[in-house]
Design a binder for these strands. Structure first.
Length: 259
DNA sequence: ATGACGAATAAAATTCGA
């Protein structure tokens, strides 16, 4: 089966591209992030016509996550245990569901904004809660992967130019340590292959010709438990989806499984 | 082909993203 994760940067703006990609890539399960719409505004009928059931959680103009599946959706869980709030709100950043033979979690980890911004400790607290939340599924018998936009470059190789990113979020030791703690729950980074160039970046800023110049980051990750990781037959970043008018600034991470 | 940012909200300018 084929599983994918993709930060689409607005479902409303991306719907036609997402539907076209579903038809061409034929994934069985897709974890989406940054819907930027409320749950009630998710066009479930359009996905159903394409053969997918939908579990979604959105509150409005920011954040929002969903899981699409053509192999069933069961045991849906909204948010993570002890999820920290920001500005008094529990934001729509996580959904977990069982889809056929796998259990998946779609994640939109807080950006952090700036190391001096309150959003930064919020990001670290979210990751700390995630490490505890993931432990049970990680140790479970079902193949499980916590995938999505982690907003962290795990290593310097995951940044197009480390010098340019010195002192910014996404590359700090605090964030990388927090990510390591999530992995310590029993999850491994499913490292994808790049379709072009040497490194499998998943995000390129809209500005400054970053995509044509391959100034990218690898921040969209799939952290898998042993049962999931051992079933992986291929993983790649579909950078073709970053091309053209109306593209998201993220490309899908696609994982094929012998399941 | 991949081209100097894009989306939501709201109605011009601001916020957010990474």
């Amino acid at each position: 089966m084929r599983v994918a994760t993709w930060n689409i940067n607005s479902l409303k703006a991306r719907l036609e591209r997402v539907l076209a990609w579903l038809a061409s890539a034929e994934p069985d399960v897709v974890c989406l992030q940054e819907l930027k719409c409320a749950t009630a505004d998710v066009p479930a009928d359009a996905f159903e016509r394409a053969g997918y059931e939908v579990a979604a959680w959105g509150t409005g103009r920011w954040n929002g996550v969903a899981i699409l599946s053509r192999v069933g959706i069961a045991d849906v869980r909204q948010g993570i245990a002890a999820q920290p709030a920001f500005a008094g709100e529990t934001e729509p950043r996580a959904l977990t569901a069982t889809c056929g033979p796998v259990r998946v979690q779609t994640l939109y980890i807080p950006n952090g904004r700036d190391t001096a911004d309150p959003h930064f400790p919020y990001k670290l607290a979210f990751l700390q809660a995630l490490a505890a939340d993931a432990a049970a599924d990680a140790a479970g018998a079902l193949p499980f992967a916590a995938m999505g936009d982690y907003n962290i470059c795990p290593t310097d190789d995951d940044v197009w130019d480390v010098e340019e990113w010195t002192g910014t979020t996404h590359v700090t030791t605090d964030e990388r340590d927090a990510l390591t703690a999530v992995k310590a729950a029993g999850l491994a980074d499913v490292f994808p292959r790049a379709l072009k160039h040497d490194r499998p970046f998943t995000f390129w800023d809209y500005r400054n010709l970053d995509f044509p110049k391959n100034r990218g980051l690898r921040i969209d990750l799939a952290l898998a438990n042993p049962a999931f990781a051992s079933a992986v037959t291929d993983a790649y970043v579909d950078r073709n989806e970053r091309k053209g008018k109306g593209a998201s600034d993220h490309a899908p991470l696609v994982i094929d499984l012998d399941l």
